[in-house]
Nucleic acid binder design. Structure first.
Lengths: 227, 227
DNA sequence: TCATGAATTTAACCTACCTTAAATATGGTC
DNA sequence: GACCATATTTAAGGTAGGTTAAATTCATGA
């Protein structure tokens, strides 16, 4: 099913439900969706019922929600739109790293497939958006490293490369850029025993100079070990 | 009032109501709005009541509707968005003349003022869109020749310059381009006594070679006499 | 196993936008 | 001045998406 036939609300739900599990996290709950959209859990329940009736999600009451195959296809199409738009806004319109998310969030509901195809061609078929997130191609395939993990979950020490910085929070993006933590950068990480401390808020990173990464930023960054 | 605070439906109504009178036509009626939006007159009445309650239109039952000052400001902002977007789609994304209208129609509800400011700068503050329609500037002023008239309303003969080809109908745009009738072109018009014949469907135009302009195209073209 | 607190769903109600059908106002015409 | 066709409005009802408050289910610790 083409996502153009869905309402903007339906498009948003599918994208958020899909994105939750992109890096292996468990499926999203009603309450988390309510928080994400700034609405009530009651409203989320009603909306999920409608999506279930449309065959886009497989809803089991009181359980986290999961996408059907049709729902996942629409979701990936929306993620492709979002990430291509973010890339275009940065590359062609001079937007900053931390400005593009909200603009893309609105544009993705309005652009046609033609528009997406044109910017994809102009950008020469990019495979990652400005934050490092992989861009699904027109056939809904996308590169997805299996050994990625959150910087916040790293224990001990080692060398890593930054893959993705989450675009959900502009403040995280600004801080990450100030610290030089952009996709592609290599890091020598010395996280001490943060795992043992239980949600330790700080991770120590050694690059050109030693910097301390705030917990919120480490939580929003995906890194991959360099062998 | 910033049009961002309005619903897409409200934005559409204001833009269409304003556009109707841009070239001196009388204000638009309930029935014409219904036809334009492909909806019922009953629905138009309800929507106009809501716009009236918001202070955007001055509605007198059974009369054609007119905008308030606040409504006109929003309308002009939407027209500016639409025409800048059409220009950008043609100049930057390689859209054809006759493809841009629908895409701009959807994008204009989604783009931010920041987006509009960026494409305005990239295009170097254009004053006319691809069809020749004037683009209001950021202060909502726009160039508006007083002596413009529809090609269909020209009688007798004389020399004219094409100002605007309406973007409402892609078929008109395609035909106009095939005939060489694009904004800026000079025409020697010999319309015969079409005025006397009462809605004569054909207008004779002499340029490099004599061509006959279909009535629907002549109706959608604004021309200005060359002195 | 059972009480309890948190999460979720149900219920009742709201607005915006849309439908069709019925009522009503308007603008000519005789 | 009354009549008529047409345009417009009112009325009644539907869906999507939202609200708050009450009921219900789940997981869990005593």
């Amino acid at each position: 099913m083409n996502p153009d036939e869905l309402s903007p609300v339906a498009q948003d739900y599918l994208k958020v439900i899909w994105s939750r599990t992109e890096w292996g996290a468990p499926p999203i709950t009603t309450g988390e969706l309510a928080q994400r959209f700034g609405t009530s859990a009651a409203n989320v329940t009603e909306t999920l019922k409608r999506l279930d009736a449309q065959g886009l999600v497989a809803r089991i009451p009181y359980k986290p929600v999961e996408l059907t195959e049709a729902g996942a296809q629409c979701a990936i199409a929306m993620v492709r739109r979002h990430r291509l738009l973010e890339t275009y806004l940065v590359e062609a319109l001079g937007y900053d790293w931390d400005e593009v998310h909200d603009e893309a969030e609105r544009l993705e509901h309005a652009v046609s497939d033609t528009f997406i195809a044109r910017i994809d061609a102009i950008l020469e078929h990019p495979t990652a958006d400005p934050h490092g997130d992989p861009i699904p191609d027109a056939d809904h395939r996308w590169a997805h490293p299996e050994d990625a993990r959150r910087l916040a979950s790293v224990t001990g020490s080692g060398r890593f490369r930054v893959l993705v910085v989450s675009d959900a929070d502009p403040e995280v993006l600004r801080t990450a850029r100030e610290l030089g933590l952009v996709p592609g950068v290599e890091l020598d990480v010395d996280a001490g025993e943060s795992g043992a401390a239980g949600a330790g808020p700080l991770v120590r990173v050694l690059g050109r100079e030693g910097v301390e990464v705030p917990g919120s930023v480490a939580e929003g960054m995906l890194v991959r070990p360099i062998v």
